[in-house]
Amino acid sequence: MKPKFSTLIILTFITALLLLPFAISGNYLPTLREQSFNLYQVFQGEIYKQVTGYVSLAFVLFEMVLTVRKRGRGWLMKITIPGSIIFWRSLHIFIGVGLVAATLIHTIGANGLNFNAIFLWVFFAVTLSALVGVVAETGVLESSRRYYGTPPAKNPEKEGKKRGFGISKGKLIAKMRDFWLPTHIILVAIFFVMLGFHIFIAYYYQ
């Protein structure tokens, strides 16, 4: 079942809390390094980075399950993947929030430098573009309103009313999706290219 608007608001709040450490990491990371240097070394150690990195990568691969489900008939021919599109789309949303948590654990809130900093911001853009788009779309979908603006009269000339100015719910959702979905897809493509470079750099400088 597709998450309701109230559930998506909660997920948005959780995502905001998960992103908060990245905004204040400049304050607590130096303190952690000074007061608990051994723990800080564990977080920066190769084993910790590899384990949490693979966990984050697993979340990314799970996210791609939605694409496989949607294109399964064309790509996988006779192989049938169980579950509806709505189920996989809902799972996609929850796993996306889990990926934010995994990224926080992997980076301990550090924003990174140079390439890694840009890569992290691209990831934030991927997450927020999807979450904001889905929340806005679901909010309109669950609304009792059928028309946004001044609804048109059935017979404006006979009734002496002006023609309506606005947009129907269906067209509004379609226009919203035409904006946020391509944006999200482009950001995802950029993210995957940068992910490949990130993995290469991580192993190259071991």
Rank of each mutant, 00 (worst) to 15 (best):
Arg146Gly: 15
Lys161Phe: 09
Ser36Gln: 07
Ile167Arg: 06
Tyr28His: 02
Thr127Met: 10
Ser129Gly: 03
Ile79Val: 10
Tyr28Leu: 02
Val126Lys: 02
Asn27Ser: 09
Arg71Thr: 08
Leu66Asp: 05
Phe37Arg: 02
Ser6Ala: 13
Ser90Val: 08
Tyr54Asp: 05
Glu63Val: 04
Ile85His: 06
His92Asp: 09
Gln206Asp: 03
Val132Asp: 08
Gly149Glu: 09
Ser129Asn: 10
Ile47Val: 06
Gln41Glu: 15
Lys4Ser: 11
Ile10Tyr: 13
Tyr54Lys: 06
Ile81Glu: 09
Lys70Tyr: 12
Gly83Asn: 04
Glu34Gln: 00
Lys2Glu: 12
Ile10Gly: 01
Glu157Thr: 09
Leu17Glu: 13
Trp75Val: 08
Ile9Trp: 10
Pro21Gly: 13
Thr127Ile: 13
Ile173Glu: 05
Gly149Trp: 14
Ile24Asp: 07
Gln35Arg: 01
Gly133Ile: 12
Val60Thr: 05
Ala117Arg: 10
Pro182Leu: 11
Arg89Gly: 07
Gln41Trp: 03
Glu63Met: 14
Ile9Phe: 08
Ile118Val: 14
Leu19Ser: 05
Ala23Thr: 15
Thr52Pro: 01
Gln50Ile: 00
Leu18Tyr: 15
Gly74Asn: 13
Ile81Cys: 06
Glu63Leu: 11
Lys171Ile: 07
Tyr204Lys: 11
Phe59Ile: 00
Thr7Asn: 07
Asp178Glu: 13
Ala101Ser: 14
Leu91Met: 11
Leu57Val: 01
Ile9Met: 11
Phe13Ser: 13
Gly139His: 01
Phe200Ile: 15
Ile95Gln: 03
Arg177Asn: 12
Val193Ser: 12
Lys161Trp: 14
Lys2Cys: 02
Ile201Ser: 11
Pro152Trp: 13
Leu113Met: 02
Phe197Glu: 13
Arg145Lys: 14
Thr103Tyr: 14
Val51Ser: 01
His184Ile: 07
Ala153Ile: 06
Ala174Trp: 12
Thr127Trp: 02
His92Arg: 02
His92Pro: 01
Asn116Val: 01
Phe197Arg: 13
Leu76His: 04
Ala136His: 03
Met1Trp: 10
Arg89Asp: 03
Ala189Gly: 09
Leu61Lys: 03
Ala125Met: 06
Trp121Phe: 04
Ile79Arg: 05
Lys169Ala: 00
Val135Lys: 01
Tyr48Thr: 01
Val140Met: 05
Glu159Ile: 14
Glu142Gln: 14
Ala16Leu: 11
Asn27Gln: 13
Leu128Gln: 06
Phe119Val: 01
Ile185Leu: 06
Leu131Phe: 15
Gly53Thr: 00
Asn155Met: 12
Ser144Tyr: 13
Lys4Gln: 14
Ala117Val: 01
Gly149Asn: 14
